[in-house]
Simulated scan of single mutants.
Amino acid sequence: MNNNLIQEVRNALDEWLDAFNNNDIEALMAVYDPEIMYANSAKPVEIGIPTVKEGFINSFSIKPKVFFKEEQVIAVEGLGYVAGQFRIAGTSTEDSSEMSESGRVVVIFRKNDLGEWKLIFDMDNRPPDVTI
């Protein structure tokens, strides 16, 4: 296993986490590949940055923060995979109560022609064994 590639993929995920936690939609979309497929367990599959962006704009209304616990990283030339647990917390726009959900996520990054790691596939679910 190539530790440099693994670190590059972790760095790309850290960019995503920073952008999400700052609710910075443009920085977040900059991490995505134009061919992104986003499979969230709560809604139909979204394909392409414009569709994914619309969903995140809506979710940013609660000012969410994500907490992530890595479970596995695999990277080979041009492709990287990260799996882990997450918890997202935010504040309801209706009554200011705290909202949160937890689950497991798998993300796949692909290195583009410019040498940048871009998120190409993002899938999450809500299994009962998540502890974060």
Rank of each mutant, 00 (worst) to 15 (best):
M1L: 10
N3P: 09
L5T: 03
L5K: 10
Q7H: 13
Q7W: 05
V9W: 00
R10N: 09
R10W: 01
L13Q: 15
W16A: 01
L17N: 01
D18N: 14
D18H: 10
N22D: 11
N22I: 01
N23W: 03
A27I: 03
L28T: 04
M29Y: 08
V31P: 05
V31W: 04
Y32A: 13
E35G: 13
A39I: 10
A39Y: 08
N40K: 07
N40A: 09
V45I: 09
V45H: 11
E46I: 06
G48E: 04
I49V: 15
I49T: 14
T51P: 15
V52S: 11
G55P: 14
F56T: 04
F60C: 06
S61K: 15
I62V: 13
K63S: 14
K65F: 09
K69Y: 11
E71V: 03
E71C: 08
Q72I: 03
V73W: 00
I74L: 14
I74Y: 08
A75H: 00
E77S: 15
G78T: 03
L79T: 12
L79I: 13
A83G: 13
F86I: 04
R87D: 11
G90D: 02
T93K: 12
E94C: 05
S97F: 00
S97Q: 09
S100M: 08
V105F: 07
V106I: 09
I108Q: 11
N112G: 11
G115K: 03
G115E: 06
L119Y: 01
I120V: 13
D122W: 00
D122K: 01
D122T: 01
N125E: 00
P127L: 00
T131A: 12
I132L: 15
